[in-house]
Design a protein around this nucleic acid. Structure first.
Length: 581
RNA sequence: GGGCUCGUAGUGAAGUUGGCCUAUCACGCCUCCCUGUCACGGAGGAGAUCGCCGGUUCGAAUCCGGUCGGGCCCGCCA
């Protein structure tokens, strides 16, 4: 019967068996100390030379050998206690020692402060997982899942598994395709989300559905985006016609996770609802980090007749001049400003104009083009003080917002405005139903084609400017990350045809792609709404990580390769033949 | 697909304005010594042609070109 390391504290004087890994060894020649580690902690074993074979065997131990040690738990003398570890007041005096398995010298040192590079850590992930931090991640992830399930259960949601072998959906991300053996030339696809299945569950009479669902998308990864597969807390509620019901229902869960679970402080108990257009205009992003202000200010009226042609031209062309005021940025060096300029350029800006206020002087390459009135009005409008710098974007509204939104986030990082102990939540609502795709030169869905246009058929048919149609669609934003996306669904076949029809897709197209859903909606589909939280990204932010691979047990690398399991891999020609490939 | 960046013993780093580099340090590894350590200590040892290929040069870890691999970002992610 094995005793866990953390249980030793209550076992002074008892004879026990402890099993685990050799964490470190201190061989004094005539006396050997072994630190044994299991998932609950580390404890010291003492092996005396009187123990004969056992002592000899202890001398053979190396780091990460797997052992079973039997003996008596003794309280250490006062001067020998180690207050650095929980079991430091005791030790196990070993009478019998078994080597359960040996270990070669490790290719990475999981317990060293210097961390091996990520590629090696991923290749030897099973060793990397022994690190206390990774153990903690696994345990916290499990705890989060327990809390989610308890919450959903309490709110009478029913967990239903939906298929992993699904069908290809044309919109959205690239699919992972699975060739069918039985039906040569045909393919399954791994679901990008259980979207259609969960809506069909609503038609099937399920009132409240949820699932911790695996989702698959073949898109290039990022630091906050896993390659290939990720998990969503997917949920849907029937007989719900307003998104507020869904938002209000799930909010307590997220608050609980942010506070009780992650130990952080909420920026505000009330979670603001911000229309998409306002978020873009005020923060230059549909996922603003609301832990700090630094709002975008429209200065077009000041500069519409300016001598400074760059600004005037932008306004004349129908664009805007907008700016952000960054506290303390007057101290930025030339090269730091250059690197922010590079960032602005990468978002489409022509350059990065600025005005710094330092020691009550105006320092700026562009101030000479402005008159006293403009400078005074500018400073007043931006609320700039000594030490601040105002950064400008003069461009189309879209580009100016994008550039300043990105800079706002970068400055937030640079000046430490993103308090890691604070969670700022917001709902971004009223997304545009359609957007103009500049590159394709045509209209496309702004977000999710399955959500209900606000106003329904009436609005779809009678609105002149289709780009002004708003979807009943909502995202939850946490500290600058989109952690949830949801909507009131379009359960009306007529409206669904119309929604696609406006983009030029005819009925036959819609039927071929979404036949099951269309047909289901003809047989008494209840109104329904729902959402899906990206639990990996949510967990990442709650754990204070900026790299999503740090919080997942076995992630793929940035090229979509599992360097440990060596996937993707080639397969036998016989396997291909069986599939008719 | 594009941009930026990195690649030096098993691991992490230093060296990178060309030459005292026969490449330095720490951890790890191996041998020996050590009865109260807990990052044990002490003595000794093995281990790297500096990602790879080519070029410039009297001389390349260092400069140039190419290539491979990693990371971040853009595109993409309904």
């Amino acid at each position: 019967m094995r005793t866990l390391v953390k249980e030793l504290v209550g076992k002074i004087g008892k004879h026990v068996t402890v099993e685990g890994w050799v964490h470190s060894r201190r061989d004094h020649g005539g006396l050997i100390f072994i630190d044994v580690r299991d998932h609950t902690g580390v404890a010291q074993l003492v092996i005396n030379p009187q123990q004969g074979d056992t002592f000899t065997r202890a001398g053979e131990l190396r780091d990460e050998y797997v052992i079973s040690a039997e003996g008596e738990v003794k309280e250490r003398d006062a001067e020998l206690k180690n207050d650095k570890i929980e079991t430091g007041s005791l030790e196990l005096v070993v009478s019998s020692l078994t080597i359960l398995n040996r270990s070669e010298a490790l290719p990475i040192q999981p317990f060293s402060d210097a961390q091996a590079n990520e590629e090696l850590r991923l290749k030897y992930r099973y060793l990397d997982l022994r690190r206390p931090k990774m153990q903690h991640m696994l345990m916290k992830r499990a705890e989060m899942y327990r809390r989610i399930r308890a919450f959903m259960d309490e709110h009478e949601f029913m967990e239903v598994a939906t298929p992993i072998l699904a069908s290809s959906s044309p919109e959205g991300a690239r699919d992972f395709l699975i060739p069918s053996r039985v039906h040569e030339g045909k393919f399954y696809a791994l679901p990008q989300a259980p979207q259609q299945f969960k809506q069909l569950l609503m038609v099937g009479g399920v009132s409240r559905y949820y699932q911790l669902a695996a989702c698959f998308r073949d898109e290039d990864p990022r630091a906050d985006r896993l390659y290939g597969e990720f998990y969503q807390l997917d949920l849907e509620m029937s007989f719900v016609e307003d998104g507020e019901t869904v938002r209000a229902m799930t909010e307590p869960l997220i608050k609980q996770l942010a506070t009780d679970f992650a130990g952080k402080r909420l920026m505000s108990e009330d979670i603001p609802r911000i229309p998409y257009s306002e978020a873009m205009d005020t923060y230059g992003s549909d996922k603003p980090d609301l832990r700090f202000e630094m709002k975008l200010v429209d200065l077009s009226d000041i500069f519409k007749d300016s001598e400074f042609s760059v600004f005037k031209k932008a306004v004349d062309a129908g664009g805007v001049v907008k700016a952000i005021c960054v506290n303390g940025a007057a101290g930025l060096s030339r090269s730091q400003i250059d690197s922010f300029t590079e960032i602005a350029r990468s978002e489409g800006a022509g350059g990065l104009a600025y005005i710094a206020y330092e020691n009550n002087e105006v320092k700026s390459p562009i101030a000479k083009f402005m008159n006293e009135t403009e400078l005074a009005e500018l400073k007043n409008r931006m609320g700039a003080n000594d030490g601040d710098t105002i950064f400008f974007a003069a461009d189309t509204r879209k580009t100016a917002n994008k550039v300043l939104g990105r800079l706002r986030s970068e400055f937030g990082d640079h000046f430490g405005l993103k308090d890691p102990n604070v969670v700022a939540l917001a709902w971004i609502i009223d997304f545009p139903f359609y957007e103009f795709d500049d590159k394709a030169g045509k209209m496309d869905f702004g977000h999710n084609p399955f959500s209900m246009p606000k106003g329904g058929l009436e609005v779809l048919e009678n609105t002149e400017d289709k780009l002004s149609i708003v979807a009943d669609q909502y995202d939850m934003v946490m500290n600058g990350y989109e952690i949830c996306s949801g909507g009131v669904r379009n359960h009306n076949p007529e409206v669904l045809y119309k929604v696609f029809g406006l983009l030029g897709y005819d009925a036959a197209y819609v039927e071929s792609r979404f036949g099951a859903m269309l047909s289901a909606f003809k047989f008494g589909a209840p109104p329904h709404a729902g959402c899906a939280y990206g639990v990996d990204r949510l967990f990442m932010e709650l754990m204070g990580e900026s790299n999503i691979r740090e919080i997942v047990a076995f992630p793929k690398n940035g090229s979509g390769i599992d360097v440990m399991m060596n996937s993707p891999s080639t397969v036998d020609s016989s396997q291909l033949k069986e599939l008719g490939l």
